[in-house]
């Protein structure tokens, strides 16, 4: 059972306020996840997106409802903004059967076929050829649609990146490769893992159009990804976009974060995407503190409801342990939402 989310960012709201509201929803959801992880309610690994919210928010708002999304293990925000209910996400974090992957995917493998969200992916670079396959299937089935493939800069050191972008460019498939460059592949800084640290230059060697945006500025992300999506949708072949961002928290809940200078982290925090946008909107006279607090309270209420839902949701029966390794005889294949 996947419950659809209650309407939050109302369609009548101006875009900037919807972007702000959605960044707040991701932030508050993940802060609560960190707390629940500490309390032992959420198990497995947990990779937080805190600090990077402008990337998912700008990018997801730039897509059409029918587009495909493939993401990474840091995908809670992407799933949420594609319309996967926060209650279904939270239940999945808990490993409950009411989760969007029915309790077997966990934090790193949120899936929702009905929303064309083809998963988080725990393997770095694992989603890239998958995304090429989605786009190829669309072409073979005569469907015009963009596949957005999100990955971190760490994936660009993987062979899968090269094989996938080569194939997409060779066949001119409608894939937007979206690199969220947060500068560290777990503990390894970009310059320590890449001979070419200009990621757009690297992608451009496959003769794809490249775009770059400040990943801390949600409006810049939205504008840039919108342009890239438009080009891909209009048949321009695949494109690559680099979003330059930073995670404020460690790689995972177990990461001691010894590889980053505390001053560097503090410096990036000054550019926090939620703070930046709300400050800009206040300066432009389009937001006051009261309105900001109202948006924040909305997000907090949604989180509280999601946690309550996850807490009361039933566990998968132990008898189901061996189910779904193979399809039971007589069942239909594939894509049943």
């Amino acid at each position: 059972m996947t419950r659809t989310r209650k309407p939050r960012a109302s369609a009548e709201r101006p875009l900037e306020l919807r972007l702000l509201a959605d960044m707040l929803r991701i932030r508050r959801m993940e802060e609560k996840c960190a707390e629940l992880y500490g309390a032992g309610r959420i198990r497995g690994f947990l990779h937080l997106y805190i600090g990077e919210e402008a990337c998912a928010t700008g990018a997801m708002h730039a897509l059409a409802a029918d587009d495909n999304v493939v993401a990474t293990y840091r995908e809670h925000g992407h799933a949420l903004l594609r319309g996967v209910g926060m209650d279904a996400i939270m239940a999945e974090m808990f490993g409950k059967a009411a989760g969007c992957s029915r309790g077997r995917g966990g934090s790193m493998h949120l899936f929702d076929v009905a929303r064309r969200f083809y998963g988080g992916n725990a393997i770095v670079g694992g989603g890239l050829p998958l995304a090429v396959g989605l786009a190829l299937a669309d072409r073979l089935q005569g469907v015009r649609r963009v596949t957005l493939c999100v990955f971190g800069e760490g994936a660009m050191a993987e062979g899968a990146f090269h094989e996938s972008i080569n194939l997409a460019a060779l066949w001119q498939l409608p894939v937007l490769f979206c690199c969220e460059n947060n500068l560290y592949a777990m503990g390894t800084a970009l310059a320590r893992s890449e001979s070419q640290t200009d990621l757009c230059a690297k992608a451009a060697s496959y003769r794809v159009a490249t775009f770059r945006a400040d990943g801390m500025d949600v409006r810049a992300v939205f504008d840039t990804v919108s342009r890239a999506v438009r080009q891909v949708r209009e048949g321009g072949g695949p494109a690559f976009v680099e979003l330059q961002t930073y995670r404020f928290r460690a790689h995972s809940m177990f990461d001691p974060d010894l590889y980053r200078d505390k001053a560097e982290i503090e410096e990036w925090k000054q550019r926090g995407p939620i703070h930046s946008l709300s400050a800009q909107l206040k300066a432009e006279g389009r937001l006051d503190e009261e309105a900001f607090l109202a948006l924040d309270a909305e997000a907090e209420a949604e989180v509280a409801a999601a946690v309550a839902f996850a807490e009361q949701a039933p566990w998968e029966p132990v008898a189901d342990l061996l189910k779904d390794v193979h399809t039971p005889a007589g069942a239909a294949a594939g894509g049943t939402p």
Binding site: V132, N166, G334
Partner: peptide
């Protein structure tokens, strides 16, 4: 050529792409 597709020498891409196609009902 749309049903019998020649690929580069790239086994990761061949199988990974095929998984994406399978997820889409092909």
């Amino acid at each position: 050529a749309g049903r019998v597709v020649d690929t580069p020498l790239a086994e990761t891409a061949i199988v990974g792409t095929a998984i994406g196609m399978a997820a889409m009902g092909l």
